[in-house]
Design a protein around this nucleic acid. Structure first.
Lengths: 136, 136
DNA sequence: ACTATATTGCAAATCATCCGCATTGGCGAA
DNA sequence: TTCGCCAATGCGGATGATTTGCAATATAGT
C-alpha cells in the first residue's frame, strides 16, 4: 500500500555524526553535536545535522530525548533507560534505575490510548551545581 | 538576607489567565491560553501571557509541564500526577496512575544528584488518532 | 564511467519565547 | 477619595532553536 521507501544512503556526514554521538555519555543537543562533528567535517551544515538526527531517530538508530529544557537532546543508547536532569544547569545524565516493566500495563488499564512507551525523568541538582551553589 | 519581595499585584489579566487555565482539563500551551484569554481580554499581549505563566509557575500556583514536544504546557492542577502524550497529535492528558512514592528514594541511592522530583510521561496514540488512523 | 535521485551546504524563513521601554493601573497612605 | 509610587502591561523588536527551499554535489546500482 505504501510507496517504496526512498533509499537511505550512507554518507560521510551520517557516519561521523553517528560516531561522535556514540563517543559521548552525555546527551548532546544538535548544536553540541554540530560543534563536535565540525572538528572532523568543517564544512558540514547545521541543517544537515538536524535533518540526519531527525532521520536516525525516526529510523530507530538513535533516540531523540524529549526531556525538559528548550533544546532536544540525542542519545546513541537506544535500550530503554531513565534520565536525570539538573534543574540548575540543564545537563541530562542516565540514571541506573530499573525500568518499571509493568507500569505500561497498569497505565493501559486506565486510558483508551494505545500506549507504546513511557519515560521517567528525575530532576535535581547535580554535584557540580551543589558545589558552586547558593547563586551562580 | 534577601531583599523584600516586590509586591505581586492581582491584575485582571492574571485573574482571567488563571480562570481560563482552571477551566480546561487540557494542558494548554502559552499560545492556546493566549487565544482563550483574548476572547475576554482582546488587548492582552502574548508577552503578558508568557510573563504571568512563568511567574505563577515560579510561585507554585500553577505547574509548568516540561514534557515532550516543542512547546511548554501549563496545568492548573498542581498535585503531582503523571501524563500521557499522543505521539501523533501531541495532545497531553492526565493519566490516573498512582504516583510511585519510593522511586525518588531508590533513585537517590544511585546518583549523587540531590533529587527533588520526578515525572512519568507515557506516550501512545490517542483515541482520536486511532480512528482517523493510517495517515492523516 | 553514467545516470537518477538522495543529500548537502547555505541562507533565509519559522516558531516559541523573551526583552526593553514608554504607558498604564493597583493599591496603600494621606 | 484622591495621590503617587512602582509593578505590570502592550507593543514591537530581539533571540535561540529548528526547519525549509534550492541549486550544487555525491552515492549506489547498472
Amino acid at each position: 500500500m505504501n510507496a517504496p521507501d526512498p533509499m537511505i544512503r550512507i554518507t560521510t556526514q551520517r557516519q561521523i555524526l553517528l560516531e561522535e554521538l556514540g563517543k559521548t555519555k552525555n546527551h548532546p543537543t544538535a548544536c553540541e553535536l554540530y560543534d563536535m562533528v565540525r572538528k572532523r567535517l568543517p564544512r558540514i551544515g547545521l541543517g544537515t545535522v538536524y535533518r540526519n538526527l531527525e532521520l536516525m531517530a525516526d529510523t530507530g538508530i538513535i533516540l531523540k530525548l524529549e526531556v525538559g529544557g528548550s533544546q532536544k537532546r540525542f542519545d546513541a543508547e537506544i535500550e530503554p533507560h531513565y534520565h536525570i536532569r539538573c534543574c540548575r544547569c540543564g545537563k541530562v545524565e542516565n540514571i541506573e534505575v530499573d525500568i518499571i516493566q509493568d507500569i505500561v500495563q497498569s497505565a493501559a488499564k486506565k486510558t483508551s490510548y494505545d500506549i507504546i512507551g513511557h519515560h521517567v525523568e528525575f530532576s535535581g541538582e547535580c554535584p557540580d551545581c551543589q558545589d558552586g551553589s547558593s547563586k551562580i
